[in-house]
C-alpha cells in the first residue's frame, strides 16, 4: 500500500441540466492527499468543494477523470461499499444525517449496515462515543442535543465504521461559535491521536490555520495550495477571490502596510504578540 489516501486525476464533473450545456462544478482537478494528512479545502458556495467531497465518497462519479480512494477506483461499482467505509463522510446539517431516535443506536447504524457482529458493534459504539467525548449522552434523543453535540454524534457514527479517512463537508456551517469549537477540537484530536486522514471543507478561515495543507478552490479549479502560512501570506490574492484571511493575519497585513516591520506569515495571536 502506498501512502496516498485520495488521488484525483484530471477530474471534471458536470451537473446535467435540461436548459443548457450543464454546469461545470469541477474543471480538471488534480489532487493527492496523503495518509494521516489534515487538509482544509476553502472556497465560496459553488466553488465545487462539496462536489469534491461527494466524489471522494463515491456518492457521485466523475464525468471524466479518475478518483482513487486508497487505490480503489470510485467508478467501479464493486468498490463502492469499501470506499464508503474507508472514507467516511460528515454532512453540513446535523439534523439531516442522524437516523435513529437514540444516540447510541445512531452511532451503531453504520456498523449495523456493514453486518458486523453485535458484540463488536457495541464495542465500537462505546469507543466512538468516547473519542468524541459524548459517552454520557448515549441514551439521549438526538433532538435534545445542541448542534455541536449532534455533529459530534455524526462524527462518532462515521468513526464506528473505522474509516481511515474522514471527509467533513462544512460540518460547522450551521453551528454557533461554541459548537464550532467543539467540532474542530474533535476533528483535530482524531487527526493527531487516531491518525485519521482529514479532509475538512469549510469557509471559516480560522479553521484552516492548524491544517497541514490548505487548498483554495474557485469556480471548479484549485487556485491556491500549500501550508496555511504560504497560502495566507498571499493576502491580496486571497482577498481578490473574495475570501478572508484569519483576523490576526489581516491585522498583521495592515500593520505591515503602515510600515511596521513584522513577518508576512503570521497566523495566530501568539505569533503576532512575539513578533511585536
Amino acid at each position: 500500500m502506498s501512502d496516498v489516501m485520495i488521488k484525483l486525476e484530471n477530474v471534471t464533473y458536470k451537473y446535467e441540466s435540461n436548459e443548457n450545456e450543464g454546469v461545470v462544478a469541477l474543471n480538471g482537478i488534480n489532487l493527492s492527499i496523503n495518509k494521516g494528512e489534515f487538509v482544509v479545502i476553502l472556497g465560496h458556495n459553488g466553488s465545487g468543494k462539496s462536489t469534491l467531497a461527494k466524489l471522494i465518497n463515491a456518492l457521485i462519479v466523475p464525468t471524466s477523470g479518475k478518483v482513487y480512494v486508497n487505490g480503489m477506483d470510485t467508478q467501479d461499482e464493486e468498490n463502492i461499499w469499501h470506499i464508503r467505509r474507508t472514507a467516511g463522510m460528515v454532512f453540513q446539517n446535523p439534523d439531516n444525517q442522524l437516523v435513529a431516535t437514540i444516540v447510541e443506536e445512531d452511532v451503531a447504524f453504520g456498523p449495523e449496515n456493514l453486518g458486523i457482529h453485535p458484540k463488536e458493534i457495541r464495542k465500537r459504539v462505546n469507543e466512538a462515543l468516547t473519542a468524541v467525548e459524548m459517552e454520557e449522552y448515549k441514551d439521549y434523543a438526538p433532538h435534545l442535543l445542541s448542534g455541536g453535540q449532534k455533529q459530534r454524534i455524526a462524527i462518532a457514527g462515521v468513526l464506528a465504521m473505522k474509516p481511515e479517512c474522514i471527509i467533513l463537508d462544512e460540518p460547522t456551517a450551521m453551528l454557533d461559535p461554541s459548537g464550532r469549537k467543539e467540532v474542530i477540537n474533535t476533528i483535530k484530536k482524531l487527526n493527531r491521536e487516531e491518525n485519521k486522514t482529514i479532509v475538512h471543507i469549510t469557509h471559516y478561515m480560522d479553521e484552516a490555520v492548524e491544517a497541514d495543507r490548505v487548498i483554495v478552490m474557485e469556480k471548479g479549479n484549485i487556485i491556491l495550495e500549500g501550508t496555511p502560512k504560504t497560502v495566507f501570506s498571499q493576502v491580496e490574492k486571497v482577498k481578490q477571490i473574495g475570501l478572508d484571511v484569519p483576523q490576526v493575519t489581516e491585522l498583521a497585513y495592515m500593520l505591515r502596510k503602515e510600515g511596521i516591520d513584522i513577518p508576512q506569515n503570521i497566523l495566530t495571536i501568539e505569533e503576532l504578540v512575539s513578533a511585536l
Partner: peptide, 10 residues
Amino acid sequence: ELALAMEARC
C-alpha cells in the same frame, strides 16, 4: 439529504 447520508454510511 438523509438518503444521501444513509448511503454514505453504507
